[in-house]
Design a protein around this nucleic acid. Structure first.
Lengths: 200, 200
DNA sequence: TTGATTATGGATAGGTCGGTACAAAACTTG
DNA sequence: CAAGTTTTGTACCGACCTATCCATAATCAA
């Protein structure tokens, strides 16, 4: 019916996502996005309504793929609850130290934490997206932890919900530490100690 | 000898600090800084070399006062090591939930974490300042934890240095959680569980 | 081939950015 | 009071910001 696109929208979203992740929302200019995606301004503004719309879609793509990958680990019925939590932490450590940088395994820092810190106070849409994502993760974390509490491998001194929030916060702490310069061994140590709190 | 200033430099730094803390470095314009400080552009550029210089000085003021207040708690010889760590966490919780927002007890989020996430990858000077501050805190944390290990109140399963980094990361995790919407009870719960890891 | 429709590139608009120039104002010292 | 020095307010600079406009290119249905 008309002239077709010469680019893949998802690839463009990935490129934009990487840029927002590296520089942050404010520090990323539309020119940066053109450079990163290889698209002209017209194509970007024709495909996405605005810089902010592009950011929202990139963020949505990021949190969904990231959380989906994490939940797959947490829902792996072949492993014990404690094993699954260890695997989750290992995934975060790999993501923070890994050379390859694909959705679900990003380089230092993560777009979720970055956006929480940079934008959540001023951007209700981003805040809502991140809030939904957090609730999604907490639900599954709580279930895994509850399972571990029932089989005795995870402490029952604390509520499952509280422990789930702790795991979430521990991961955020690891990500901030990573940006602050912590190496792989340091991150693994943080994960080990966080696990101590769960199994104590 | 000449016309004197009609403003207090430290008050201006405080106002600037608050603005950078609320909006982030990139999102803060020089006009915002004029509005916040009540100063004209000339006065700002006459007193500080540039926006970045003003930011550096505001950040230096923030981290120093914040860390000094925290170290005072950690070095209070009248309390036991565990008590001092609990007091540190309580201080962080108060800072994140407190109504009054003065250096050493900021509102949600903290400039240290915010700057780590937003700037450290691109701003070597800020990175260096934060790194020094982290080392300063870790040194004292390690000493307190080592003391607790010797008297048996803190676990010896992990190295004091590793536990110190954990406490630091736990605080960062609490601050990110706070920006993500965690209330006081949730933050206190995070602190309690972090303490479990130390006393296990 | 033609007409309709969409994508693309380049130019540009209107505004804001960080930073500066300059003259008037306000103070200290002699 | 006068000379000297610094602060302050205003106007302004070029660069860059997000976003749009428009002419041209490319494609599909008929």
């Amino acid at each position: 019916m008309a002239r077709p696109r010469t680019f893949d929208e998802d690839s463009a979203l990935d490129a934009a996502m990487r840029t927002f992740w590296e520089k942050g929302y404010e520090a990323t200019s539309t020119q940066d996005l053109c450079d990163a995606t290889g698209l002209g301004r017209s194509s970007i503004y024709n495909t996405f309504k605005s810089k902010h719309d592009l950011f929202e879609r990139a963020l949505a793509r990021y949190v969904d793929s990231m959380t989906t990958a994490q939940l797959a680990v947490l829902e792996d019925a072949r492993r014990s609850p404690v094993d699954r939590l260890r695997a989750l932490f290992a995934m975060v450590v790999d993501g923070e130290t890994g050379a390859e940088r694909r959705p679900g395994g990003r380089g230092p820092g993560c777009l979720t934490v970055n956006t929480t810190v940079e934008l959540v106070a001023r951007d209700p849409r981003a805040a809502e997206m991140l809030d939904r994502d957090t609730r999604r993760r907490l639900t599954v974390l709580r279930a895994v932890i509850g399972e571990g509490q029932r089989d005795g491998s995870i402490t029952s001194r604390r509520e499952a919900g509280a422990l789930a929030r702790f795991v979430n916060a521990a991961i955020a702490g690891m990500r901030v530490s990573s940006q602050g310069g912590a190496d792989r061994a340091a991150l693994e140590s943080l994960a080990d100690i966080a696990m101590d709190a769960l199994t104590a």
